[in-house]
Simulated scan of single mutants.
Amino acid sequence: MIFFGTRGVTTTPEKGVFHCPACGPGSNFRWRRVRKFFTLYFIPIIPLNQLGEYIECDHCKGTYDLNVLQYDPEKIAQDFEAEYHKAVRKVMITMVLADGQIDDAESQMVCTLYQELTGRPMFPGDVHMEASDQQTSGASFEVALGSLAGSLNTNGKERVIEAAWRVAHADGEFHETEQALLARIAGILELSSSHYQGLLHTLSSQGRLPEPTPPPLPG
């Protein structure tokens, strides 16, 4: 009697080191490939169709999609930081332009706040140049800010509101167009009306938001 059939055979075409989502960086992995084979007397003879591929961590034995090999948390953080910086600049410059003119006090406030929020310098000339580019291109801040709304934590969103508010008040006035723009920014950041009104109350009474209190140390 001849015994034949099919079964899956797992092979390891590649090994290496990756950033395991469970174990962290520096973890060893195996690239596992499963292929169906025609068997004769239970011995795989003829390779048939491929059933699947996955990455397996040698330490935790977790299995992941092949895309996990492209996972680079440091690059992701750098990309997010760059997008955040760009969005903050766009928001503040849009606020400067809300009343139709670039006031020197507002321009200087943008530079000060950008330094506070990002730790990087910005100069009045940069403000005027980016404002001109923004007016010429018609580029909207909504897209840049909207893409960050789901990634910014509450404190990050509040700091964006504070920056826009302080820029608007730098010339001593808070025009209706600036008020409407600030409300739009809060909406894009998905802040509730009560949260937004609470921020305005704090800013109106104190001029800036208090620094968040760090959580207490355990024990």
Rank of each mutant, 00 (worst) to 15 (best):
M1Q: 13
I2S: 14
I2M: 15
F4S: 15
F4L: 13
G5L: 12
R7F: 11
V9D: 06
T12L: 07
P13C: 00
E14P: 04
V17H: 08
V17L: 11
V17E: 08
F18Y: 11
A22K: 14
G24F: 08
G26T: 04
R30P: 00
R32T: 01
F37S: 04
T39L: 14
L40N: 08
I43R: 11
P44F: 10
I45E: 01
I45V: 15
I46Q: 03
L48N: 07
N49L: 06
Q50L: 11
G52R: 00
I55P: 03
E56V: 00
D58G: 01
C60F: 08
C60Q: 08
D65C: 00
L66G: 00
L66D: 02
V68Y: 10
V68K: 03
L69F: 09
D72I: 08
D72R: 13
D72N: 15
P73R: 12
I76Y: 15
I76Q: 14
I76V: 12
D79G: 04
Y84R: 14
V88C: 14
T94C: 12
M95D: 02
L97S: 06
L97K: 11
Q101F: 09
Q101Y: 09
Q101R: 12
D104M: 05
A105K: 11
A105C: 00
E106I: 06
Y114S: 02
L117R: 10
T118S: 03
T118V: 03
G119Q: 06
P121Q: 07
M122E: 04
M122Y: 10
D126Y: 06
H128D: 02
M129K: 13
A131N: 03
A131V: 03
D133N: 15
Q134R: 09
T136D: 10
S140M: 00
S140Q: 11
S140E: 03
F141W: 15
V143F: 13
L145H: 06
G146E: 02
S147A: 13
S147Y: 11
S151L: 12
N155S: 10
K157F: 10
V160K: 03
I161D: 11
W165G: 00
R166L: 05
A168L: 02
F174C: 02
E176R: 12
T177E: 14
T177V: 11
A180S: 13
L181N: 03
L181A: 08
A183T: 12
R184L: 08
I185K: 08
I185S: 06
A186P: 05
I188M: 11
E190G: 06
S193H: 15
S194G: 02
H195D: 08
Y196C: 12
Q197V: 07
G198E: 08
L203M: 05
S204L: 12
S204Q: 14
Q206E: 11
L209K: 01
P210Y: 10
P210N: 10
P212I: 01
P214D: 05
P214H: 08
P216F: 09
